[in-house]
Simulated scan of single mutants.
Amino acid sequence: MTLLTHWPLAGLRLTTPRLELRLPNLDDLAALASLAAEGVHDPAVQPFTAAWTDVEPEQRARSVLQYHWSRWGEWRPEKWELNLVAVRDGTVVGTQGIGARDFSVRREVGTGSWLGRAYQRQRLGTEMRAAVLHLAFAGLGAQHAVSGAYADNAASLAVSRKLGYREDGIERHVVRSEPAVLHRLRLTAERWQRHQLVPVKVEGLTQCLPCFGLA
């Protein structure tokens, strides 16, 4: 018996021209936590609803570890969240997540991501998102993908629009004790097919299908 026998997600690989996305091992998680400790965004802004970055570096790093471990422990086919590390030339540069509730019925996924500050503005965010969208639509048979970004998060909004998302309304939240407007975005399978900008290769998916609630 190997780890893959009990946890086939460990063998899932998404490859783009510059990145490999995979379930992190402990060394990958340590690298990702260190990346978070170095900073994820300009401290003057807060792009996340849960302000997990507004703490000291060591606490920020530990929260990354605990978040990934909690998602592993709470995984169910009816409610799952797959958080992958993005690796470029052997270096962990960020993380890309994709999740769903009752996916076998709803066929809808949501995504979220962040990159270390040293790796931003290099179009890596587009490749990361394109990779999990390929997994969702081509691999799992999704019909919709949703995302969201605050009005001042121009980079995230630009990635969504580039990949074919359309506006899907707004939500009002409180961020740092101030009102903030979140723009919801939605991508259909049809529009995804017309906006595939990045070639993606998927390995190890067949064994994982029951984990996603698919036969």
Rank of each mutant, 00 (worst) to 15 (best):
L14C: 08
V64D: 05
R76G: 08
V202S: 04
R76Y: 00
L133S: 03
R184W: 05
R191L: 09
L35D: 01
D27F: 03
V132H: 01
R76Q: 15
L209E: 03
G94S: 08
K201T: 15
T111G: 05
A180K: 10
L9V: 06
L135F: 03
W75Y: 00
P17R: 01
E203M: 09
R107E: 08
H144D: 08
E167L: 13
R71E: 14
K201I: 10
E78N: 04
L21V: 06
S156V: 10
H68G: 00
G148S: 05
E171F: 09
G73Y: 09
T53I: 11
A118E: 12
R76W: 02
W114A: 04
Y165T: 02
W192I: 07
L26Q: 14
D168F: 13
L29G: 00
H41S: 10
V202I: 15
G164V: 04
L84I: 05
T53G: 00
R176S: 13
F137K: 01
G213W: 07
W69G: 09
L21T: 01
A155S: 13
H68N: 13
L187F: 04
G110A: 13
P17K: 01
H134A: 15
K79M: 12
C211I: 00
Q46E: 15
N83K: 05
G141M: 08
W7G: 00
R13S: 08
H144M: 12
L182C: 09
A118T: 06
G99F: 02
D54I: 02
V200E: 07
Y165H: 12
E171P: 02
L187R: 03
L21P: 07
V109R: 00
S113E: 13
W114Q: 03
V175C: 07
L26N: 12
P179T: 05
E58K: 10
W114T: 04
T49A: 14
S177W: 14
Q196M: 11
E171Q: 14
A50Q: 12
E167Q: 12
W75T: 03
S34Y: 07
D27E: 14
K79Q: 14
V159L: 01
D89F: 04
L9K: 04
